[in-house]
Design a protein around this nucleic acid. Structure first.
Lengths: 137, 137
DNA sequence: ACTGAAAGCGACCAGAT
DNA sequence: ATCTGGTCGCTTTCAGT
């Protein structure tokens, strides 16, 4: 299915998704058109789901990054999912097993912003908040 | 500091970090060279930290994605941090507040792989595992 | 800061091994 | 599945506003 060349391509794109086919080809080594064909196949198979970006939220004025887990009240899953799009603070939301149903990464300006956000959340369930200190990996 | 054009550029790159300057420029609208200048500035300021990739781990033979939180034993932080690089299963590791010190996203082949991974982890602390069910956002 | 022009380079497609 | 060659479009630089 996936050979070592595919894995290497994915690794390179993981480090820099804007790398050109020529650039990737030099690291393999492989011609640019073959790199292109393989990447197209990976995209068609949806093994590559998206090309995206890592930004520094603190430098954008959002100094508080937190994980919030929430134990949704019975029957609130539908409305919570519908509300997700209206909160740009929520960068990621994932259903998980365990006593909390949802795990979120949330980005906020300051404590006041966090307080308002939690006040909103308690309509849907019981939230637990953990501050993000630093990224180890 | 960041105006609406910068935010729009970041938004476009977030959806597709391989978008060309011309392409981004058409959506703003702005000339390709101005888009390039702004992106270079965002990179220099390290507001844009990296261009990266989203892959489908289950299609790569890693059917189990989990969050593992760990409450490290006293004095184990150093050795745990040093060990991070040797475990490709750990896709992300973050220091957090609360009774658990570390939050990790871990990708594994199957239950046996998870068991072996947890057996390894208990050298460093008390792990708690939550299976990832689905990504809502 | 933004634009537009010119040169160089990469993406893309076709055809061959 | 990979490569080469040719065309077109994009990137890059820079002079001008």
């Amino acid at each position: 299915m996936l050979d070592k060349i595919d894995l290497k391509i994915i690794e390179v794109l993981h480090q820099n998704s804007r790398a050109s086919f020529v650039e990737i080809g030099k690291l393999i080594p492989l011609s640019a058109s073959s790199v292109r064909e393989r990447i197209q196949k990976l995209e068609e198979l949806e093994i590559i789901k998206a090309y995206t970006l890592k930004v520094d939220y603190s430098k954008m004025g959002y100094g508080l990054e937190v994980f919030i887990m929430i134990k949704l009240f019975s029957g609130k899953l539908e409305s919570f999912m519908a509300a997700l799009d209206s909160f740009p603070e929520i960068k990621r939301a994932i259903r998980i097993t365990g006593s909390h149903n949802i795990h979120m990464k949330v980005v906020l300006k300051d404590q006041l912003h966090l307080q308002r956000f939690i006040d909103m959340l308690i309509k849907y369930g019981e939230p637990t908040t953990q501050l993000i200190l630093s990224e180890l990996k």
